[in-house]
Structures are given as structure tokens and as C-alpha cells.
């Protein structure tokens, strides 16, 4: 299936969803006033991908900031990944956070406690 690629802006993250490689990346800032519109194509892409996913899907989430409007949409993305995991294909979510950014680490742990997909917390040391 076709890859999904979106350039980042001051309020929205860059997105690279590659179905051939099974690699999904969300990077940057996610602080739009209304995040539904931005995340809709991401969730739709995953819906399609989940019909025939790779044996292993690697997810890299490296956000500098995200707002509470985005937090629900990110959960929707993760819930789609959970259905892939339930279908006996592996998914791993790599949650990146900058050194000292305890809030971002904690946000990752919140998701980890809600979503039944293995998380790996990765500290970015400058």
C-alpha cells in the first residue's frame, strides 16, 4: 500500500507511515486547536494497513510537545495498533523523550497502561 508522508509545521508533526517496511513515525509538535482533522488520514491509513500488516510493525513516536486535543487522537492511533497486535502480528511502540522531560516520559507511561502493545521508553541524550 502507498506510504503516507506529511511534512511537519509549527503546530503539526511530520508523519511517515511506510507499509512496505512496517515503520510508522510521528515526530515534532502536535498542538493544533482541533486535532481531529489532522489525525483522520493517519487512523484511516492504519485501518487499511491493519488488514494485512507485516509480522512486525515498528512505531516511533518522537514528540517535542503535544496538547490534550492531540492526546485523544494519539490514543486512537494506538488503538488501531492494538488491533494489529491482537491479530497475532507484533507491534512495538518506541516512545522517545528528551533527557529531563519527565512529563513526556509520564505521558508515554499513561498510554502504556491503557494500550496492550509493548512500549519501549527511549531517552534522547544530547
Amino acid at each position: 500500500m502507498e506510504a503516507l508522508s506529511i511534512e511537519g509545521t509549527a503546530k503539526t508533526p511530520s508523519v511517515k507511515f511506510d507499509g512496505q517496511e512496517g515503520v510508522i513515525e510521528i515526530k515534532g509538535r502536535s498542538i493544533p486547536e482541533n486535532s481531529i482533522e489532522f489525525y483522520k488520514p493517519l487512523v484511516e491509513w492504519l485501518e487499511e494497513y491493519s488488514k494485512s500488516p507485516l509480522v512486525l510493525t515498528q512505531v516511533n513516536v518522537q514528540l517535542e510537545y503535544f496538547n490534550t486535543s492531540s492526546s485523544k487522537c494519539i490514543l486512537d492511533v494506538f488503538k488501531k495498533l492494538e488491533t494489529i497486535q491482537k491479530g497475532k502480528n507484533d507491534v512495538i511502540i518506541n516512545w522517545y523523550y528528551e533527557e529531563d522531560d519527565e512529563d513526556m516520559l509520564e505521558a508515554g507511561e499513561d498510554y502504556e497502561s491503557i494500550i496492550r502493545v509493548p512500549f519501549k521508553m527511549i531517552e534522547i541524550v544530547e
Binding site: 493544533p32 486547536e33 482541533n34 486535532s35 481531529i36 490534550t68 486535543s69 492526546s71 485523544k72 487522537c73 490514543l75 509520564e106 499513561d110 497502561s113 491503557i114
Partner: peptide, 22 residues
């Protein structure tokens, strides 16, 4: 933390994108 996670997981976003989490 518990309240945040509960609202995150159970409440839908409004049309304007607000989530009651701010």
C-alpha cells in the same frame, strides 16, 4: 493521573477538538 487517564480513555473530543482535559 487517574482522572486524566479516565477522561482520555472515555470521553470523546468535541467538534471543536476540545477534550475536557486541559
Amino acid at each position: 493521573k487517574d482522572m486524566y487517564k479516565f477522561i482520555l480513555n472515555h470521553q470523546r473530543l468535541s467538534d471543536k477538538g476540545g477534550g475536557g482535559l486541559g
